[in-house]
Design a protein around this nucleic acid. Sequence first.
DNA 1: CCAATGATTGCCT
DNA 2: GGCAATCATTGGC
Length: 220
Amino acid sequence: MIKAELTTSEQQFLASLKMLNENFYTRKDVVKISKELLGKIIVTYFDNRLTAARITETEAYNGIVDKASHAYNNRRTKRTEIMYASGGAAYVYLCYGIHHLFNVVTNLKDVPNAVLVRAAEPLIGIETMLYRTRKTKPDYTLTSGPGNVSKALGIYTHHTGIDLRSNHFFIAEDSYTVSNKNIITTTRIGVDYAAEDALLPYRFLIKDNKYVTKLPKLNS
DNA sequence: CCAATGATTGCCT
DNA sequence: GGCAATCATTGGC
């Protein structure tokens, strides 16, 4: 991105961030990374528009042993190939023919783990998010739900494979932290087909944050 | 080749 | 709570 095209407040915002490094993503515990991504900030600079949102809800997908994962049983197809990349790449796929779901690839090369970002809190570029989602009010639904997160931030399937340390698409941290006691853990959404793995406690939300999805399932 | 379907959303009653 | 929208991917033939 070109600094001169940004407003002063946007530049100040970016200056307060520290991009997550490769070591964050290549660690082996996808559940731990999934929790740690809560509170982190997704930044996109597409179409000369800066948007940023704080992650409030994630789900972990534990590779070849997880029946809910696209890479279960080492399934390796054109679509899932990016999951086998080294941690830190974007995996965006189309769901229900309509929704572009954004995932963060984690773990080492050839270990296909990923974290689905299910909700976020808008920070920067709310006007742009409203425009992209064709909404009129910035209520919690603007970036609540994985399809809405991508729509608001301008993320599409063609962004699959992008390194999340790119200057136009990255994840960063600021001074905000989430303590363990402020993390709600539940089962994952929409994975009933995964038999016993549907019961795994792999969904994480920031407690008391309104920018999360509804809880249609058993909460804890 | 082709039918089935999904890590969802929004609008309906 | 029910259900339609909508299509790339997947796997079976």
